[in-house]
Design a protein around this nucleic acid. Structure first.
Lengths: 181, 181
DNA sequence: TTAACCATGTAAAAAGTTACATGATTGT
DNA sequence: ACAATCATGTAACTTTTTACATGGTTAA
């Protein structure tokens, strides 16, 4: 599971709480994990037990105690080893494409509706992605190479979404041309 | 789960056995499911119990009996309803991008190695995808619109892989330019 | 006063992967 | 002799999702 490694990655920048990690996950679009509570808190317990992180408990009045996690040297080593290990091919789970694949029984209106809904969704994502890119807080102490890679990762996401839109527009046109009416 | 719906989709073309469905899954690249035995046979049992498919048992000498599944009218209705329902946004799980995101501690050789391995993987996929596209058996009784959509789905997959390669080449160049040596 | 934010977690269910199990036939 | 194809399934495990549970603070 690379959720634990992604957490180690964030902690390699600076210490965070579970709550902050959850936000980081949702702010970084090219990381797919829902980052739901269950997974994050469980992963942190696991990472602690493996001595890859340590926890620092900070009491707050009137708010529950914060648990700030710090990466250990062992954790940094684990992160390095994982980052340099053989990559797996990306998994894309796109049920919309399957809906299209079996849209044979849909009428023209239903089909254009389906495509339109997906297009709207992609447009929202693109707008959100651009906003997040602008608002992102770039941490110091990063090499030029690292910053370049993150720039490329964001750009990839934006290009992907733009590509989706282009494809959807082309598809709509092709479908209209072949419409039953 | 849309695995059951994808099975219904294939069965809407013509009846198949579980074994044949497993092959169809692996032959269609834009469907991500591994289509492992467990899931397919379990899904078929479930679909049967919901009366969305019926099973026909064909005895064979010296080979185990085939179970051929047929879609029912109820199954066709379910397929139609699913295909016209609101689409969800695609989920992309790309751990390679996360490895890149935390490649800060890798040296130049390790990083170029990582990128090179992924590039090789994408090239293999692209070659396989093109082969599958050529060899695919197009079933009759499909409208022009349906054929057009399948054409577009295959093209999308190929364009995606080509886009990945272009991005990787650009990334490699940018990384070399910023190399430590 | 209502929603969002801060901050932690648990329980149960669903989905998905990997390995195991059987066994004949056909092609290289 | 070995691998691939045909054909079914089960068991154990891991991963992921969804819902539940608590409760104070802050801003519109």
């Amino acid at each position: 599971m690379s959720l634990t490694h992604t957490i180690l990655g964030f902690l390699s920048w600076k210490p965070f709480t579970g709550y902050e990690l959850k936000k980081l996950f949702s702010e970084t679009d090219f990381i797919y994990w829902s980052g739901n509570n269950n997974q994050i808190y469980k992963s942190l317990v696991q990472l602690s037990s493996e001595k890859l992180v340590t926890r620092e408990v900070v009491q707050q009045d009137s708010l529950p105690a914060k648990k700030i996690y710090h990466i250990t040297d062992k954790g940094r080593k684990e992160l390095h080893d994982w980052a340099s290990s053989s990559p797996e091919f990306a998994q894309v789970k796109n049920t919309f494409l399957m809906q299209l694949a079996w849209s044979g029984e849909l009428n023209d209106r239903e089909l254009s509706n389906l495509i339109g809904e997906y297009q709207y969704e992609v447009e929202m994502r693109l707008a959100m992605c651009r906003t997040k890119l602008e608002r992102r807080t770039v941490l110091p102490d990063r090499t030029e190479r690292e910053e370049y890679i993150w720039e490329m990762l964001w750009q990839k996401e934006i290009d992907y979404l733009k590509g989706e839109l282009n494809w959807l527009v082309k598809l709509s046109q092709g479908v209209v041309k072949r419409s039953g009416k």
